[in-house]
Structure formats: structure tokens, C-alpha cells
Design a protein around this nucleic acid. Sequence first.
DNA 1: CAAGTGATCCTAATGGCGTTAGGTTTTGTC
DNA 2: GACAAAACCTAACGCCATTAGGATCACTTG
Lengths: 189, 189
Amino acid sequence: MPRAGLSPGAVVDAALAVIDERGPEALTLAAVAARTGVATPSLYVHVRNLAELRRLVAQRVLTEMAERLGAAVMGRGRDEAVAALFHAWRAYVLAHPARYAAVPAQPRTDPEVAAAAAGLMEVVLAVLRGYGLTGSDAIHAARRLRATAHGFAALEAAGGFGLPEDLDTSYQQVIDMVVASLRGTAAAT
Amino acid sequence: MPRAGLSPGAVVDAALAVIDERGPEALTLAAVAARTGVATPSLYVHVRNLAELRRLVAQRVLTEMAERLGAAVMGRGRDEAVAALFHAWRAYVLAHPARYAAVPAQPRTDPEVAAAAAGLMEVVLAVLRGYGLTGSDAIHAARRLRATAHGFAALEAAGGFGLPEDLDTSYQQVIDMVVASLRGTAAAT
DNA sequence: CAAGTGATCCTAATGGCGTTAGGTTTTGTC
DNA sequence: GACAAAACCTAACGCCATTAGGATCACTTG
């Protein structure tokens, strides 16, 4: 019997695969064990328990998003950067809806997850700096941006938009709304 | 041995109490049974299974929200109605964060849950009518509003706003942002 | 008022999952 | 080539959802 050669990272990979294929509720240690060709208790060598695996998944997803969004806004400024940020956000959610849905189930109180979320926040704040926003103004603006992007993403990932109206159009209007609010609050340019 | 005198509604009541006290993940048939003073299998007389109980909970919460938000916007119009809608939305979430978090776990595909969500949508559309928005314009505007209110609510309910900046201020800015966007898209007044 | 009927509730039992305990085998190292 | 650490296994426990089938309560009907 050869070894599976697992590692914490590989377990998280398998967990993401399970989530992508069968949804966040289907993430069980049994499912991950089956996928990695290992008995369930063997997973405890690599992760403390199911709760930690969920935590690691959330961390991975947030990190992945921060990377992609960071790359998307690179070399762009102001309105263009905001649009790029929003489009990259939605693109990630559409590519991995179940993965995105798996994150909010996590308590943000956890330090590791919080750190990953902070990485995403960093990208948002970087974009806002282009509007001359710093300090408290930037925080409030970042919350507007996050709430808006996350709200749309969460609803879309959950199939919350029933009607046939074009979602791209709705999203563009969301972006315009946020951009206008950033211009209004922004320091003089 | 006297009877517990349960009913589907009473079971949902107990489920909500469990959720309020111990979070959405703590909603188990065993917990509800313990709270209602009944053996677990007895619950199957009133609800088909755990999935249906979750569905009923989501339905109840959405209906409850539609009622409160509907009451809040009554007698108000335009910007004032939007502000009232947003404040009532957030007030509900702050009063019952766990309850709010229990909803999105549900598949919106379910007809009964969808109907309850439609009730909420009705309130939003009624407010938008005050801006002369109808048809597709109203749908897009309603999505902006829902995404924004839900996004902020979801993040706040999950403790997603870590920083100490005042959340009331952030929320007021969110409301201003949405109001401005509604004015912009609105038909001539 | 007594008998019957249907619904409510129970205990018993099954299977899946998370988790712990303790043994075995593989892998890398001296 | 032996030894030590780690990866992996089987066995076992408890909790939960769910089903099956029996007992008991409450209401209706003759």
C-alpha cells in the first residue's frame, strides 16, 4: 500500500474540489478522505478537525481573491481601477460560486481568516487611495465598496436574482453607483 | 403524559429560538425536540425533515422582514422611504443576526422561499415607484438596493467589519450612495 | 355516554459522520 | 542496515437524521 503523500495544502485542495463539485454543505471529512484515497481518521494528521479545514478553506479563498483582485487593479487608477476590481470580484464568484459561498460561514473572529480578509481589504484601500481617500473616509468608502460587491456576489452566487433582466447591466449600474459615491466623498483632485 | 400540542408553526418558533440563542449551525432536530419537550422523531409529524424545517425558517424570516420593511416605508416617499427601508433592514439584522444568517443557506429555487423573497422585493419595488421607476429600470434599481442592503447586513451580521469606525456613519453613506443613484436613473420628476 | 378512529407521541433501530485511541507500516536518517 | 518519526490503518464511541412500528390521547359519532 503506497502512501497518499498528503499535506495540509493537499487536503485543502481536495476540500475545494469537493466544494466546487457538490457545494459547501457537502464538505465532510469523509468526502475529502474518499477523494484523497485515505481513511477518514488519517486526515487528522494534517488538519486538526473539520472546523479547521473550513477555516483553511476560507483562508485560501480569501487569499486567492486578494491575489486576483490585486492583479486586476494593477496599473489602473480611480474609476478604471474600481471597475476592474468589481469585474474581477464578480468573475471569481461566477467561476467558483460554491467556494465563495463557503467563506461567510466562517467566524471572522479567527485571526488567520481575518488576516486573509485584511489582504482583500488592502486591495480595496489601495484603489481608494487613488481618490485621495485616507483614514476614516477611506474606511467608510471601503465598507461601501465591500458591502456592494459582496452583496451582489452573494445574491448572484445563491441564485437570488430570479428575473430575466440582464445581470451585466445591473452590475454596471452598481459600479457606476459606487464610482459616483467615491467621487462625491473624495478629496479635491 | 400530557401532549406537547405542537404544530408546524410551533416547531418553527422553537427553531428560531434555537437559532437566536446558539446560531444557525446549532439548528438540529434534536435541539428543537429538546426545547419543545418531545422526542426527536415526533417532530416528523409536523415537518418532513430538517431540510424542510430550514426552509420554513427562511420563509418565516423573509416574511417577517417584508412585514417590517413594508410597515417602515408606509406613508413615506422617495429618499425618505429609501432611508426608512434601509434602517428597518439593518434594525432587523441587528435584532436577529443569527436569524438573518440562516436565510441565505437556503436554495432560492424553492417556490415557497422564493414567494417570501418576492414579498420583500415587492416592498422595494413599491419604494422605487416613487422615483418613477418601472419595468427593467426598476428591476436594475431594485438589484442595486438589495445588493447594497444585503451586503452591508451580511457583513455586519457576520462581524465582517473589524475596524472601530462608526458603522452608523458608514451606513448613512451607503444610503446616500443608493439615493443618489436612484435620483440619477429616475425618470423626470 | 361508550366505542371507535385518527392523529400525536413514543421507543427501538439503522446508517452516516466526526472524533479519539492505539497499533502497523513506510520513509528518511545515522 | 537499524532506528525513529511520521503517515496511515482499524476499531470504537457518540451524536444526529431518519424510518418503522407500537402505544396513547382526543375527538367524533352512534
